[in-house]
Computed example of a mutant assay.
Amino acid sequence: MRKIYLVDDDEDNRMLIRQALESMAEETEIVEFTNGQQLLTFLEESCSIEPSLILMDMNMPIMNGVEALSALKDRSELRHIPVVLVSTSQSHTTIESAYQQGANAYIVKPYTLDGYLRMAHAVNLCFLNIYLPAAQTGTFRNTAGKNVVIIEDNPDHAELMEIFIKRDAPGLNVIRQTSAETAIDFFESLDKTASAAIDLIIVDLYLPARKQGLDLLAWLRMYFVDKGIPIAPVVVMSSSGHQQDIKASFKLQANAYLVKTAEPAGSFSYLTDLCAVWWDTISFPKKPENGIA
């Protein structure tokens, strides 16, 4: 049974989010809270199964979402729980601050039913590993000029991933790296402008061992900090569904963790959908318009 903690002081908003999630995600329990302090107290006192995700409003009384997020990420025993912040604000400064505080994703609060369904779909795909038929996911926007880096040491998987992405988004630029070492060499070869042009990074955790993947996640964070630019979303896509691997990846600030299906092509067929989610539904700090040489 998957579990989501929904934190929002607005009863109507909680109802809309709950209905959207329940319409798409079966066997998912949603536990509601009205402020950040209530959430933290429950997490400290509860012995129940940890949530797969905390979906939290930013503006709440007593303790707001940013304060609660900061408290969560300051505690080593809670740092691995992914947090999606939801807010009416579209301010670049607010969005950038949310990610600096450790948010896994930032979603501007929808105003339509379709918007709530898109939010639910983003949650399902990125945090619950629920793959829905394409007919339920909406359409993709133009992805021409976007750059996706795939770091995958299994050549068959890498080939399939690129095939599925280019099938649905032929204008999208796919950059494949076969190991943590080649990925580091690639990023170090880029100047600041080219680094800022990376729009999504998809990383296999076992490269070929878990340590290489985790070390690369930590390195990527420091690389973008040293460059002084916001990092692109980093999505781990692994055959491992073990909780220790998922928790370790989130502790190192992976934005999302997807488990490959028994037939990897089944999950790879949703890669363009994954791109659309991060570029259309989830807000990320804006970067300068530029390209990779």
Rank of each mutant, 00 (worst) to 15 (best):
K251H: 15
G145L: 01
N173E: 11
L274H: 03
A183V: 05
I175G: 07
H242T: 12
A293C: 09
A254C: 06
A20K: 00
Y116T: 01
A98T: 04
D9I: 04
Q212H: 13
A158T: 02
L39F: 00
T94G: 08
M56Y: 00
P61N: 04
C275E: 11
V203H: 09
F250I: 06
P285Y: 03
L217A: 00
S89E: 08
A197K: 02
R79S: 15
K166D: 08
Q19F: 12
T41H: 10
T34N: 14
T281W: 02
V86D: 00
Q100A: 13
S48L: 12
G291W: 07
T139Y: 12
E77S: 15
Q243H: 10
A265N: 13
C47G: 15
L6E: 02
G138F: 01
N129I: 05
T139F: 11
L72R: 00
E45L: 14
L43Y: 06
R176K: 15
T272E: 12
V259I: 10
N154A: 12
Q212P: 07
R210I: 08
K227T: 08
V7H: 03
Q19A: 12
R221G: 07
G145H: 05
A265I: 15
A262G: 11
F127L: 06
R210H: 10
E45Q: 14
Q90H: 11
Y270W: 13
Q100I: 09
A183P: 05
L39S: 00
G138K: 02
Y111N: 13
S189T: 07
E289G: 06
K73P: 03
L274K: 04
D10E: 10
L190G: 01
F187G: 04
P170T: 05
R79K: 15
G115H: 04
E44S: 14
R141Q: 13
T193A: 12
M63T: 04
E159K: 15
I81G: 03
E50D: 15
L205D: 06
